[in-house]
Design a protein around this nucleic acid. Sequence first.
DNA 1: GCTCGAAAAAGTGTCAACACTTTTGCCGGA
DNA 2: TCCGGCAAAAGTGTTGACACTTTTTCGAGC
Lengths: 223, 223
Amino acid sequence: MPEREQSTLVDRVTSKIFEMLLSGEIPLGGPVNEAALAELLSVSRGPVREAVKQLQGRGLVVKEPYLKARAVALTVPDMVEIFQLREAVEGMSVRLATQRMSDAELDDLLAAFSDAKQRGDGVALDVHVRIAEGSGNARVRALLCDELYYLLRLYRARSGKAPGRREDAFAEHWQILRAMKARDAELAESLMRAHIGRATQSLQALLATEAPSLGGTEERKTG
Amino acid sequence: MPEREQSTLVDRVTSKIFEMLLSGEIPLGGPVNEAALAELLSVSRGPVREAVKQLQGRGLVVKEPYLKARAVALTVPDMVEIFQLREAVEGMSVRLATQRMSDAELDDLLAAFSDAKQRGDGVALDVHVRIAEGSGNARVRALLCDELYYLLRLYRARSGKAPGRREDAFAEHWQILRAMKARDAELAESLMRAHIGRATQSLQALLATEAPSLGGTEERKTG
DNA sequence: GCTCGAAAAAGTGTCAACACTTTTGCCGGA
DNA sequence: TCCGGCAAAAGTGTTGACACTTTTTCGAGC
């Protein structure tokens, strides 16, 4: 055990399993075996059990009593549900942030966004994170940052990025930030909901054209 | 433990601890001692540990590594945060339900509401639950029913009910249901948000008049 | 050859003991 | 009397073994 960044074993195990989900080492929809993970990570089954339970709480793992736990399938319909929820919550997030962030905080956010834009950096999620933090509502922030964004990252890591609306997203973010700067909470909320609503629609379009299930979800024997 | 055997011990322990929170046996903001609970419930510490972790996931318990776990404080500002989140999510919930529930389901809901209204029954939450179920969005339903409503029940059980707006709430629910029946999703969402927004405002009014902390949150030795 | 059922295997659920961390309380020194 | 540090106590974190449930496998009967 070289480093002790996170204080407790469970946290490290949780992070490790999440990385395994991101990387595909555990396939989407595939089984999550406590004993195997315990041996792989050289820990007992207890911490693994708690880590899995925690991931279950975050919606990354589903399980029923005595049945094998499985990684979330993350089908396109799942993502549509997540985006509908995001639309509502992020709308409220930006509304509150518009009312509660100080001018200094807003300027800082604007500046960071401009920099990132010029570097061509992929900061989409970071803008959303900072708005959530600026909302002053810990539950909204936790829901977005600690739950939904994990699922988003997982989906993006697995499905070859979102539909490539990279430049559109920049423009939309810029509009939202301007509305915040103008202290127009209604407008900021509308813009945010439209922003996410568009992503939802492209997901639903995908759903119409593509096969219903997303790659790599087969059950796979390890032996 | 008179009734039901839920399949696994952890579930029973979780329910039991939740009841203890509702009843006040564990005071709000008070310590949640694994060993003591284990002995009280005649189980080992393992299941208690997992149950606490689950409640932590639901936001009913907060804990940091190696520090005593504590029941959520549920101050008025906490409830304001929860209501702001509810405003957003229930708005989306009723919007989706208006689009997706069948005529038969809507009629059934209307009828059940009329009956309950005549019985003078306190069915406020039930209406919200059925709308969430009708939204067809499992994540929205889970967030509202499995997380936020638990906190609401806990708050109501502890703070001498919500401000007595019983009749107002009936009228507002009726309006919402009518909008749903008319398939006016925009209107239904607006009404729902206003409905919850009013509750938020009375909470904030409470916050202005009352002492900042809510009764019974003292640390208390059990000996 | 196919089906049904029992035994074995795999995997999850539970337990009691041990290790580590934090807190509490006591004692000596200034 | 007050402060700092050491030691005991309390409480959480971790472990390996055992119990229960589900799934798979294999063989008998049809």
